[in-house]
Simulated scan of single mutants.
Amino acid sequence: MFDTSSTKALLGPADPARGLPIPPPHARAVDLIAVAEATVNIDAPSGVRRRRILVPVAAGVAAAGLIATGVVASGLTDGNPSGGTAGQATGPTPTRTAAATPTLGPVIRPVAFEIDKQPPATGDQLRALAAQLAPSRCDTTTGKYTFIHTIGWNAVFDDTPDGKSQRIIPSERWEWRAADGSERIRTTFLPAVYPNEESYQYFQKHPVQPTGTPAADVNDLPPNPNRTIAPLPTDPAEIAKRLAGGDPFLKVRDWFTTRAVPLATRAELLRILANTAGVVWRGETTDRAGRKGLAVSLDDERARHVLIFDPRTGEMLAWDDVERPVDTVAGSKMLLACEHTDKLG
């Protein structure tokens, strides 16, 4: 395949753009996902992120512009002298570590449940959990930024012509969000993992060549009224109003994934799930970071959606979207830390 340099060399004097600088290479799809996730409206109606569906076109175009132009936010003030500048892979400085970094793969399987067959409706269990929640770090810390640390993926990539062998590219993200919409996102792409043993064996025999993507990427986004984050409501009527018009199960998932959810709001969200048709109780489980949690699930015609909650604080530890009947974990995210801070890393 010709790249820009080889094409210009081939054209030689006939090149109409001779003498002009070569622009930077286009961003890859996996790179666009990391930035695009942070730019979407997190209160928009949700749906399962399906296999081979990566990001909406509009979000991808916006993300490509951010990467290609190297946008740096003037509104972000680094409170950490060692934080570095945008584009430097200096390594994140998280304000806490809530869980050990998980060892993924090489083959990703759905998490195991205490109740795998004929699970009961979850009303009583979630209401009991909501009644005895303890404060979490997001309740006891203060600061300009909401800090969220996650590891996960939201697509399975088809990398062979027949579509029989796929790879999953997990990313680790550290996000600092301010109320004015300014944001710092650090992203590291992790080694590929695989949805089944056949895919793993295929790529052992046909390794994918490195593409030159840096080990870490930093994006600073300037203040933007379209990205401002109002505090989540704690009043039950207002919470119900905000969740109206979509699937409450997936909206609850998205709130926990992108927000610091206050204790009173967490309790009400658990009670809403307790009254949501189709949500079943899966009992105890262990997430991929080795944390004990309580799981619930909701099935639709294409996927099983799983939420895992901290049994002490009611915070969401992780979510999975498991495609059926192949049991491919097409989307997953672990929340490793969430708190407020005045420091950027």
Rank of each mutant, 00 (worst) to 15 (best):
residue 103 T to M: 08
residue 321 D to K: 01
residue 190 L to Y: 05
residue 20 L to E: 12
residue 43 D to L: 15
residue 343 K to E: 12
residue 155 A to F: 05
residue 253 R to Y: 08
residue 297 S to N: 04
residue 31 D to G: 07
residue 71 V to F: 12
residue 71 V to D: 08
residue 319 W to G: 05
residue 239 I to W: 09
residue 38 A to H: 10
residue 251 K to R: 15
residue 225 P to Y: 09
residue 267 A to R: 04
residue 214 P to W: 14
residue 80 N to V: 09
residue 332 S to E: 06
residue 333 K to A: 10
residue 238 E to N: 03
residue 260 A to E: 11
residue 233 P to Y: 11
residue 178 A to E: 03
residue 34 A to C: 11
residue 72 V to S: 14
residue 156 V to R: 00
residue 130 A to Y: 12
residue 147 F to H: 10
residue 18 R to L: 07
residue 112 A to Y: 04
residue 49 R to A: 04
residue 31 D to N: 04
residue 249 F to S: 08
residue 178 A to L: 02
residue 220 D to V: 06
residue 241 K to I: 05
residue 328 T to Y: 00
residue 115 I to V: 15
residue 248 P to G: 06
residue 93 T to Y: 10
residue 295 A to W: 03
residue 265 T to P: 04
residue 71 V to P: 01
residue 343 K to F: 13
residue 21 P to Y: 10
residue 100 A to Y: 03
residue 212 G to M: 08
residue 29 A to D: 09
residue 51 R to K: 13
residue 27 A to L: 03
residue 169 I to T: 10
residue 223 P to D: 14
residue 279 V to Y: 06
residue 197 E to W: 00
residue 29 A to V: 12
residue 78 D to G: 07
residue 292 K to R: 15
residue 44 A to N: 11
residue 310 D to G: 08
residue 20 L to S: 07
residue 35 V to T: 14
residue 33 I to K: 01
residue 115 I to Q: 06
residue 94 P to I: 11
residue 314 G to R: 01
residue 42 I to Q: 10
residue 262 P to A: 01
residue 261 V to P: 02
residue 240 A to Q: 13
residue 272 I to E: 11
residue 229 I to K: 04
residue 302 R to V: 14
residue 259 R to H: 12
residue 16 P to C: 05
residue 103 T to C: 01
residue 32 L to T: 02
residue 264 A to D: 13
residue 54 L to K: 03
residue 324 R to H: 09
residue 58 A to G: 08
